[in-house]
């Protein structure tokens, strides 16, 4: 097995009123993209704060490269790129000034990677940060996180505020960084966002680790819901009948849920035959995904 880069063991940080993280344990290995999934307030950012050494754990430990995240944070930081979830930039500066300051803080001399990243995200750094839109600020934060080509990237909701085009570029960048050998931990509250990039995901619920799973396994076991729209009700009814009656009919639209991808070709065949004129995929919420996945595991057992 490859080298453990981030090790979290029985980590607890209690903020009271059930907030915080409790008894968290997971390991991220070298070269892995590790997703941190959970609804708002599940404890993703709290865990990341522990990893960054901003807060000391109440119990348990958090280590990066075998070093304690709080006591030895400055040693760890030379190998880490960090993007905070809540961007608080130095509003009085220009983007360029801020990038230079951060490069100076990190001791980076060569600005070529920084410029490359600015071009990638089409970021004009000459603007005042105060006047930047949320998306532009996010790009600035991403450039800061990636510019040192660090061994480890810790990204808290990295795509928030980005438009779909930029989200795509970000995904490409992440895959390239992975190729380079970087270890990446990223948090998100959307399954789709982690789907393309992550090898494994941890699911957090109310501060506790609900599961750590291979992405492949989650993807395979995910249910798929589709809604077909037909030209008229008769065709919709015909399609439902051909599919064996398992679906919900609503006027001229038919919703079907598949447990896995196996039935998809047949379903598409029927839809085509009945002249379906529209198809929409209903994305599954994290909670639905979770319930489905674990419901199934329990049935197996």
């Amino acid at each position: 097995m490859s080298k453990p880069m981030i090790e979290v063991a029985n980590l607890t940080c209690d903020y009271g009123h059930g907030r915080g993280v409790f008894d968290l344990s997971f390991t991220v290995y070298q070269g892995e993209v590790f997703g941190f999934l959970g609804p708002n307030g599940a404890g993703k950012t709290t865990t990341i704060r522990q990893l960054m050494g901003f807060v000391r754990p109440d119990r348990g430990s958090a280590k990066i490269l075998g070093l304690d995240c709080f006591a030895q944070s400055s040693k760890i930081q030379s190998n880490v790129g960090y993007l905070p979830g809540e961007l608080a930039l130095m509003e009085d500066m220009s983007g360029e000034g801020f990038l230079k300051l951060i490069a100076g803080m990190k001791g980076l001399r060569d600005p070529s990677r920084m410029e490359e990243l600015c071009n990638l995200f089409e970021l004009n750094p000459h603007q005042r940060i105060r006047r930047m839109s949320k998306g532009t600020k996010q790009k600035l934060g991403l450039v800061c996180a990636f510019m040192g080509s660090p061994e480890i990237l810790i990204l808290d909701e990295p795509t928030s505020g980005l438009d779909p085009l930029m989200q795509n570029r970000f995904t490409q960048l992440l895959l390239k960084e992975k190729e380079r050998g970087a270890t990446i931990l990223l948090s998100s509250h959307l399954f789709e966002e982690t789907e393309k990039t992550c090898d494994r995901v941890a699911i957090l619920r109310a501060g506790r680790l609900a599961a750590v799973e291979q992405m492949q396994k989650l993807r395979d076991s995910r249910t798929r819901s589709y809604t077909f729209v037909f030209p008229d009700e008769q065709l919709a009814q015909k399609a439902l009948a051909q599919w064996g009656g398992k679906g919900q009919l609503e006027a001229n639209s038919l919703s079907v849920t598949l447990d896995n991808a196996a039935g998809l070709p047949e379903l598409l065949g029927i839809a085509a035959e009945c002249k379906a004129c529209d198809l929409r995929e209903k994305s599954q919420t994290l909670e639905e995904l979770f319930l489905h996945f674990y419901g199934e595991v329990q049935q197996d057992a």
């Binding site: 960054m52 400055s74 030379s78 608080a88």
Partner: peptide, 18 residues
């Protein structure tokens, strides 16, 4: 102002001790 608004995170996310 760095601590109150959170910009201190950027300074601490660098290989410099607090």
């Amino acid at each position: 102002r760095y601590l109150d608004r959170g910009a201190m995170a950027w300074l601490l996310a660098s290989p410099n001790s607090r």
